[in-house]
Design a binder for these strands. Structure first.
Lengths: 101, 101
DNA sequence: CGTGTAAGGAATTCTGACACG
DNA sequence: CGTGTAAGGAATTCTGACACG
């Protein structure tokens, strides 16, 4: 389930190099609830490779004029859609099993 | 070819947490040519997940009484063996192709 | 709204050395 | 030989704020 991609081990300086974003931008996206680094010892932020990719994505959207709130809202919708899809799928699977029994 | 595992982005403090080794140990293994972090801005060491796994391996061997020099020597032999194997394999493949032609 | 910056402090990392065994 | 530690300095990161637009 968890892999290297999900392992939050990268400091903000390296994330900045990797993404080309400023530390200010990276911290701001966190403030807007778009990214969630862990804090080692309650202080220093640590990001995963997934976070790095996500940050680039976010930055691209902002460059396209999409606000942080808009990004957050859209993602919530996507997630909700996906959950509905999964729920329906599970329903069909269950129904199929009942028939076989 | 390169993946997240090979990306040297982890600072020594995190490596220490991840491996359970002291920073002293990690730096010492570098001194003994067993591990090669990159230096961001010529100063701070950065390790990959592969390095992390390798460090645990090294530490285990040392705990078993195998010296750093011994480890280095053994690995060189392994590498040499592998190269010989690859060379022979390539030879056979080439031979097979010639026959077909 | 998203980002830059200067400010002061705290946490991290670095090197070279002395110590032990 | 492999590792701990204290020492002093350098690099990194943190927060809260002011600025611009």
């Amino acid at each position: 389930m968890s892999s290297y991609k999900d392992n939050k081990v990268i400091t903000i300086g390296v994330v900045s190099e990797l993404t080309g974003l400023s530390e200010r931008q990276i911290r701001y996206y966190e403030e807007r609830k778009l990214i969630f680094p862990i804090r080692s010892n309650g202080k220093t932020r640590k990001y995963s490779f997934n976070d790095v990719e996500r940050l680039v994505d976010i930055a691209n959207k902002i460059e396209d004029g999409i606000g942080t709130f808009e990004i957050l809202k859209t993602e919530k919708k996507e997630k909700s859609k996906e959950e509905t899809r999964n729920r329906m799928l599970r329903g069909q699977i269950n129904a199929a099993f009942k028939i076989r029994k």
